[in-house]
Simulated scan of single mutants.
Amino acid sequence: MILTVLIAVLLLVLAGCACVLWAARGGPRWTHAVAKATVAAGHLASTLLRPGRSGTRSGSDSDDGGSD
């Protein structure tokens, strides 16, 4: 069952990528809509999966290991 879901997600991702490429080359109007949805889903996924998204990164730049 889980394999079927993963294959379906993989096929949707591949179809979305194909639409992005086709829309970039001037495809039909519907490919532009699918391409926008695919790019938006990619941005959303990368934002949600990015570590440290809670805003606690502000002190990480000052910690350069200078203390002996």
Rank of each mutant, 00 (worst) to 15 (best):
A18F: 14
L3P: 00
L6E: 13
D63A: 15
L21F: 08
A33Y: 12
L49S: 09
V34P: 00
T4F: 11
L21D: 12
V39K: 14
G55F: 03
V39A: 14
R50C: 12
A37V: 09
A8G: 01
T38K: 00
V9H: 02
T38E: 02
R29L: 14
D61C: 02
L44C: 01
S62T: 05
I2Q: 08
D63T: 09
A40M: 14
G59R: 03
R25D: 15
P28F: 06
G66M: 05
S58G: 10
S62A: 12
L48W: 11
T56Y: 04
A37D: 01
L14D: 08
V34Q: 03
H32D: 02
V5D: 13
S60Y: 00
T38M: 04
G42I: 07
A35Q: 05
G59F: 04
D68V: 12
L10S: 12
G26D: 05
T38G: 00
A35H: 05
S60M: 00
G66I: 00
D68W: 15
A23Q: 11
G52N: 02
D64A: 12
H32L: 03
L12H: 01
G55W: 02
G65P: 04
P51N: 06
V9W: 02
S67N: 05
C17T: 13
R29W: 13
L10G: 15
L11G: 10
W22T: 14
V9Q: 03
S67Q: 07
S58F: 08
I7A: 09
L10A: 15
A35V: 07
T56V: 05
G52L: 00
V9K: 04
S58Y: 10
L14W: 11
L11F: 06
A45F: 07
D61L: 05
G42V: 08
W22D: 11
A35Y: 03
T38W: 01
L48N: 08
A18W: 12
S46N: 06
D68I: 10
A40W: 11
H43W: 11
R53Q: 04
G16K: 15
V5A: 15
A33D: 13
G66Q: 03
G27E: 06
R50I: 03
T31G: 07
L6F: 10
L21G: 07
T47A: 13
W22S: 11
P28L: 09
S58M: 10
L3E: 04
G42R: 06
S58E: 15
T4D: 11
L49G: 07
